[in-house]
Design a protein around this nucleic acid. Structure first.
Length: 580
RNA sequence: GCGCCCGUAGCUCAGUCGGAUAGAGCAUCAGCCUUCUAAGCUGAGGGUCGUUGGUUCGAUUCCAACCGGGCGCACCA
């Protein structure tokens, strides 16, 4: 990689300067490379001279000069080396090195940008994990998009990843679900019943009740309430979980594993786990309840695991669940949570530490609320009242790709405004199309070329030295950074970086396409005299002459661009269409 | 009150490890389709990076205080 070669050369220069006594270098300096904003600052710039200034007690400019003087055979790497004002090293890399980027993309294809950073470390990514008490809503959609992108990013960086959905199929909410469904069921059987005040009011509950009736007839009417509730709950659970699974599938997401909370309770795992903690004096009894000493591990206070009435809290099963995850031998646990659960992080980290692991073994990615708007007006959502926009509705209205990209466009830790009217209106102008269009446009380019018997060479088959326009070099430079972006996106667990990169790349390709000619004009088109007239009146229509070899080189470049766009979209779980 | 997140253009947001003249999209205005897909392109206007201090060659970025917004602080999940 170009960046690696440059930093290596600079590091060697620093060392050799040190050996000759020109620099002290008390600590090995970090070679800080960045992409300059202005073309006259070269391809790569480095700020190491300025950061050394203090410890070397010399002006940065002098240090920069020393570094330059000690670069061995600068001609091999650089075509120009300059020092700018305080002490920036502005380096222009030889063109041949940029061409190597295209060769690398060709050689690596779909795995260009991928790395072995993770060294096969095993990661469990748990996400969505919505209670099976209703259909998924928009907020879950965002978590789903983020979680899936994280899975793909981690896989692409050499991690062994398992995705898991934790089903909260125990506890109060499920009980309430059973009660709600039974109430609707009894209604449909002509019984008048008071609907539970805190029950689930959504229309889907009636649909589920209808399924219960289809299955059980009116048999539940005569059963004892407890049993009738239980049966309603069982049917509802299966129905709703299937619904969730189908919604996710439509969204392009399939989990490796589904983990049931109830299974931890029925198998006695929770009892066992709490027993272990008790034996280690990490649990204590107080006020008739049982508490976990999470404060020992930095939580602000201890937490109840078993209530006075004897029921377990959610935390109890979560302790058992996370212990189970750790026992399965994962090197890293990634939990994707709604941001309103952030107060829960310290106690889960306490759990991890209670089992002897550093708290960093658990990384929680918080997904902030989706603010649903309709024509600028906030849509109030509440699962209880049943007024909420489902993921299904959003997918139907905006499309899967657009919805995903929208969710991934922003840092997941910030609030997201999602205006349904706007999303519908903009379905033609959504940023995702801007990126996908690059892929489709290049595909089209190649189709046209083939129809005209113009061969589309791979980089290795093209005269790449013909790519000398600054726009072409800039594009290649952008492609060269893709692996860096992918890595950063994975390491920071921030998929939005990739989304932004792709938009930036698209923002270079479309202007390039409009400015530069790739194929020669169609033979039947009336070129010649018309061109000169047009070029005067419409500068956005490219009229530059392209020799066949330049066409080949540019097609090879476009091929590489297409590959990178495809790889980038892949990692976000968004499709790369051949045609739009 | 305590904790977490956030405050950057009219709106929605990027901004890497502190770097050079702070960037996109939308919206507004003015233009570009007889030639590779106009889901595109060109140009214009628009900024006290919440405020005040501190750290240093240099701060949107780091630190502190304050102001404003969101969320959390359950024997709910």
């Amino acid at each position: 990689m170009v960046q690696d070669k440059v930093s290596q050369a600079l590091l060697e220069a620093l060392r050799s300067a040190q050996q000759r006594g020109m620099l002290k270098l008390e600590q090995t300096p970090v070679i800080n490379l960045e992409a300059p904003k202005r073309p006259e600052w070269g391809d790569v710039s480095c700020t190491v001279a300025m950061s050394l200034s203090a410890s070397e007690r010399r002006p940065p400019f002098e240090i920069a000069q020393i570094i330059i003087d000690h670069i061995e055979q600068p001609d091999l790497l650089f075509s120009r080396v300059e020092i700018a004002r305080p002490g920036f090293l502005n380096l222009t890399v030889k063109r041949q090195l940029w061409m190597d980027v295209l060769h690398a993309i060709e050689a690596q294809g779909a795995s260009y940008g991928h790395s072995h950073l993770g060294q096969g470390r095993r990661v469990l990514v748990e996400y969505v994990s919505a209670n099976p008490t209703g259909p998924l809503h928009v907020g879950h959609g965002r978590g789903a998009a983020v979680g899936q992108a994280l899975v793909r990013l981690l896989k692409a960086t050499g991690h062994e990843v398992v995705s898991e959905y934790y089903i909260n199929d125990a506890g109060r909410q499920m009980k309430l679900l059973g009660v709600s469904v039974l109430a609707r069921y009894l209604e449909s059987c002509g019984k008048s019943v008071a609907f539970p005040e805190d029950g689930y009011h959504g229309d889907y509950i009636r649909a589920v009740a209808a399924r219960v009736k289809a299955k059980e007839g009116e048999g539940l009417v005569s059963l004892p309430t407890v049993e009738a509730e239980q049966r309603s709950k069982d049917v509802a659970y299966r129905e709703l979980l299937t619904l969730i699974r189908q919604d996710l599938e439509t969204f392009g997401i399939v989990f490796d594993s589904w983990f049931s909370e109830a299974s931890l309770l029925t198998s006695g795992t929770v009892d066992q786990v709490l027993g272990e903690l008790k034996a280690r004096d990490l649990l204590f009894d107080q006020d008739g309840a049982q508490w976990f000493r999470s404060s020992v591990f930095g939580d602000e206070k201890d937490r109840v695991v078993r209530k006075q009435e004897g029921d377990y809290t959610y935390l109890a099963s979560d302790i058992a669940y996370h212990r189970d995850k750790l026992r399965r031998g994962f090197d890293l646990l990634v939990d994707v949570w709604g941001a309103d659960h952030h107060g829960y992080i310290p106690r889960m980290q306490a759990v991890v530490q209670a089992y002897g692991y550093p708290k960093e073994r658990l990384r929680v990615v918080l997904v902030q609320m989706v603010n649903l708007l309709r024509g600028g007006q906030k849509v109030e959502m509440s699962k209880r009242s049943g007024e909420f926009i489902t993921l299904r509705e959003v997918m139907d209205e905006v499309g899967v790709d657009a919805a995903k990209f929208f969710f991934l466009m922003r840092d997941s830790s910030t609030h997201l405004d999602f205006d349904l009217e706007l999303a519908k209106q903009q379905s033609q102008e959504n940023p995702v199309y801007y990126v996908q269009y690059v892929h489709a446009r290049i595909a089209s380019l190649r189709r046209v070329a083939e129809s005209r018997d113009i061969t589309c060479p791979f980089p290795s088959q093209a005269d790449l030295h013909l790519l000398e326009d600054p726009d072409e070099i800039a594009l290649i430079r952008k492609l060269s950074v893709f692996p860096v972006v992918l890595q950063a996106s994975a390491v920071e667990l921030e998929p939005h970086r990739m989304a932004y990169y792709l938009r930036e790349l698209a923002g270079m390709v479309h202007p390039f396409y409009n400015k530069h000619r790739i194929l020669p004009p169609a033979p039947d088109s009336d070129a010649g005299t018309a061109v000169s007239i047009e070029s005067a009146s419409s500068p956005s229509r490219p009229s530059e002459a392209v020799a066949p070899s330049l066409t080949g080189a540019r097609l090879a470049l476009m091929w590489a661009v297409q590959q990178v766009v495809r790889n980038g979209l892949q990692v976000l779980g968004v499709s790369a269409p051949e045609q739009m």
